[in-house]
Simulated assay, not measured.
Amino acid sequence: MPPVARHLMILGRVQGVFYRNWTVDAARGLGLTGWVRNRMDGSVEALVQGDADMIDRFVTLAQDGPPAANVARIDATDVPVEALNGFEKKPTA
């Protein structure tokens, strides 16, 4: 099955609670590639790529995130797959 990619906007109490670090660990654990970063508006943005089932599993896990997070919602959009290796944190945008 070819890889798929989703752009995620994660809203709620997701900054200052180690959400990005949690995202990197969770994504890598599921074999996903992509990136995560904080947004100036207080949200977290991520691009996740890989097996569709693993992305669905990631989004389900991301609804909870780390213990101190309080995710209000995740907006997911299918996007074209990019040539990426690994999963990294990017600077705030």
Results as ranks from 00 to 15, higher is better:
D53A: 10
D25Y: 10
P91F: 11
A69N: 15
T92I: 11
E88H: 12
Q63T: 12
R39A: 14
V59A: 05
V44Q: 02
A93D: 15
I55L: 11
D75C: 02
N70R: 10
D56Q: 07
R20D: 11
P80C: 04
D56Y: 01
P2Q: 15
A62K: 05
W35T: 01
R6A: 03
L8G: 01
L32N: 03
L32C: 04
G29K: 13
T77S: 03
R57D: 08
W22R: 11
A83T: 11
D56S: 10
M1Q: 12
A5F: 03
Y19F: 14
T77F: 01
P91K: 07
F87T: 01
V59F: 05
L11W: 07
A68I: 01
V14D: 12
V59T: 14
R57L: 08
E45V: 01
L11I: 05
T33R: 14
L84Y: 09
R20I: 02
P91T: 02
V81G: 05
A27H: 03
A76Q: 09
L11M: 15
L11K: 13
K89I: 15
I74S: 04
M54F: 10
R73I: 02
V14G: 03
Y19R: 05
G86I: 08
A52L: 07
T77P: 01
P66A: 09
D41R: 12
M1P: 07
T60K: 12
W35L: 02
K89A: 15
A72E: 15
W22K: 13
V59C: 11
M1K: 07
R6Y: 15
R28S: 09
A93G: 13
R73F: 06
A27W: 12
G34I: 00
D53K: 11
R73C: 01
V24L: 15
E82V: 04
S43A: 12
A52M: 04
E88S: 10
N70C: 08
V4T: 11
Q49A: 03
T60P: 00
L84R: 14
A68K: 15
I10E: 02
W35D: 06
A5V: 03
V79M: 04
R13S: 06
E82G: 02
G29F: 14
A62C: 09
L61P: 00
K89V: 13
V48H: 01
I55D: 02
V4M: 05
A93W: 09
I10W: 02
T77H: 07
F58P: 11
G65A: 09
Q63K: 13
T33E: 09
A27C: 12
T77V: 12
N21T: 09
A62L: 06
M1D: 14
A69Y: 08
Q15G: 05
V48C: 03
A76M: 03
P80Q: 08
T77K: 14
A76P: 01
D64R: 14
N21I: 00
G34Y: 02
A76N: 00
I10C: 01
N85P: 00
L30W: 07
G34N: 08
W35A: 02
G86K: 07
L84F: 14
A5R: 08
N21W: 14
A46K: 02
D41C: 06
M54R: 13
G50R: 07
R39E: 14
A93R: 13
T33C: 09
V4F: 01
P80M: 06
M40R: 15
R39C: 10
L47T: 00
T77Y: 00
Y19W: 15
R39N: 12
V48G: 02
M9H: 08
E82I: 03
V14H: 11
R28N: 06
